[in-house]
Amino acid sequence: GSCRVSMSMAEIRAGFTAIKANIQSRDPIRTLSILSHPHSLHKLKPSDRCCITHQLFTFYVDKVFKHCRTEDSFVNRKISSIANSFLSASRKLGQCREQNNCVCGEESTEKFKQILANYEGLNVTSAAMKSLGELDILLDWMEKSR
């Protein structure tokens, strides 16, 4: 199902761009990705988009941001900005899913399981920092499929 939710992608993107180099430099693992391997988000069917987007926003709010605290005040403030934007958006996506009865297809369920497996495969801080460093993968996919 489709979900038209107003969220300020530009603000989230600007917040991430400001800390991207810092966050990605804390992730030394080149050979693993939480979001994009083995299967890319871009391969998902359009009908699954609403469900997987909500699942991913909830994943970031529930699991990722809280383990990304750094020693850098500027980075922490930008993470807070992104986290609060994600919280606001995930609420709207949740309401939209209920109203539109966005069913989670088999493909997106499988994809989200894979993402959780990738996440649980690392220690929590590494997994959280890697997930945060991959935010542009999520944003690129969302904007491309708008």
């Binding site: 529930d62 941001f65 809280k66 807070s80 919280l87």
Partner: peptide
Amino acid sequence: GEYEREYANGSWIPI
């Protein structure tokens, strides 16, 4: 923010 209240033990962030 609301995120800090609900998901980060009510933490505060210095400016």
